[in-house]
């Protein structure tokens, strides 16, 4: 009927973009909160072994990382090397590394520092044992063997 006939030529109204900045800001804050910057540029290749009984590393700010694996540059050989921060290191450098890490934290947090060992799965235990012995000497007892999570097929 003519009464209900649509008025022609109006066109669809444009979607308001006024809330666009708000939406973007929301996304921005989300990524700002969840982001963790890469701790170091990896000089060694690391394929983490898999495990099922894993725990989450709770406080990222209280974790120091030690990387062990074969160098990414093939020219440096295939034997596993230790990487602390951004450079290759020897077992004896760990003491300084741990003490530096301690001096950066508050007194009350020193007990809670975890040392995360990110080790390539092909690595032999010899070098890992040396690192562990050194950590014991320095008194960094809390360690974490970094692994990838695998679903348990037996459960």
């Amino acid at each position: 009927m003519a009464k209900f006939k649509k008025k022609g030529g109006k066109g669809t109204p444009g979607i308001s973009t006024a809330s666009l900045p708000d939406i973007i800001f929301m996304l921005l804050f989300f990524f700002m909160v969840t982001t963790t910057m890469r701790e170091a540029t990896l000089l060694v290749r690391i394929t983490a072994p898999q495990a099922t009984e894993v725990q989450k590393l709770e406080k990222k700010s209280l974790v120091d990382y030690i990387y062990i694996g074969p160098p990414q540059r093939k020219a440096l050989g295939t034997d596993s090397r230790i990487q602390l921060n951004d450079q290759f290191a020897e077992v004896k450098d760990i003491r300084e590394f741990i003490e530096l890490g301690r001096s950066q934290r508050d007194e009350s947090e020193k007990q809670l520092i975890t040392t995360s060992l990110k080790v390539d799965k092909e690595t032999k235990m010899g070098i890992v044992t040396d690192v562990k012995q050194e950590l014991r000497e320095v008194g960094a007892f809390k360690i974490n063997y970094s692994t990838a999570k695998k679903q348990d097929s037996k459960k």
Binding site: M37, K56, L57, I143, N144, Y145, A148
Partner: peptide, 16 residues
């Protein structure tokens, strides 16, 4: 710059 992966692993306490 974001990396979403959470660090997981087996936590152990070394003996003195």
């Amino acid at each position: 710059t974001t990396t979403m992966d959470v660090d997981v692993g087996i936590t152990r306490i070394l003996p003195p």
